[in-house]
Amino acid sequence: MGQFFYQLVASLGAAVNANVQGLGRVCTFMLSFFYWVVRPPFRLKLFFEQMYSIGYQSLFIIALAGAFTGMVMAFQMYFGFQLISVDSLVGPVVTLSLAKELAPVLTGLIVAGKAGSSMAAQIGTMKVTEQVDALEVMGINSHQYLAVPRIVAGTLALPMLSAIFLVVGNYGSYFIGTRALMIDEAIYLSKLSEFMFIEDIAHGLIKAFVFGFVIALIGTYFGFQVSKGAEGVGRGTNQAVVWGMITVLMLDYILTSFLVRIL
């Protein structure tokens, strides 16, 4: 029995230790980002390429996810609210949950799965095929060349995508609420303006901003962590998605408890 507990504690300790070390490396990586992001050359072309691939290429899927989320939320809220005859509040409740939670979090999860993984795969592949070494040998800092544009673009693209999620989600909710659930259009809109504030939008956008930064940071970090072998790239990609998503969910809680106090 004592032996068992000893082993349990030892393996728990080892796991914590490994993760703390990993966290330390991520922090070092983040510092390297802040060091290089403010130093020339500023490669705008790479930034725009990344905005295109993180932002523009995710537009459709984000809009689709937004529309269905808004629609299903309207349904769910309606059937609950109807019981206590407050179905006129469907609009603001859906919008508030979209603005503060669902838009940034779901956008974050989707982008972590889509862009975070492809960042890790791209950089990981470049690592194992010595393309990263080639950059360094030419005298180009690989973090500055590969990580900086991706992280900056990710940080800026996510709030935009989240805003699109929110707008499309609202249309979805409005559409279902007024066409399928027969809530009066005028009431729906007036309740919306009564209960929605700019702070709620800001709440969601701030979250999205942080999520974008973290997802891109983690995606590029695991790319650089990849070592020899093709299975290394697969593992790096996998870890980028898993940790990207988990970090989004954990940060969501932390940010929420913080933002509700200041906004």
């Binding site: 592949t125 470049m126 095929t129 010595e130 393309q131 070494d133 080639a134 040998v137």
Partner: peptide, 11 residues
């Protein structure tokens, strides 16, 4: 100048 084993061209 360096030539890598597998050329390391930017793909």
């Amino acid at each position: 100048g360096m030539l890598f084993q597998y050329a390391a061209l930017f793909d």
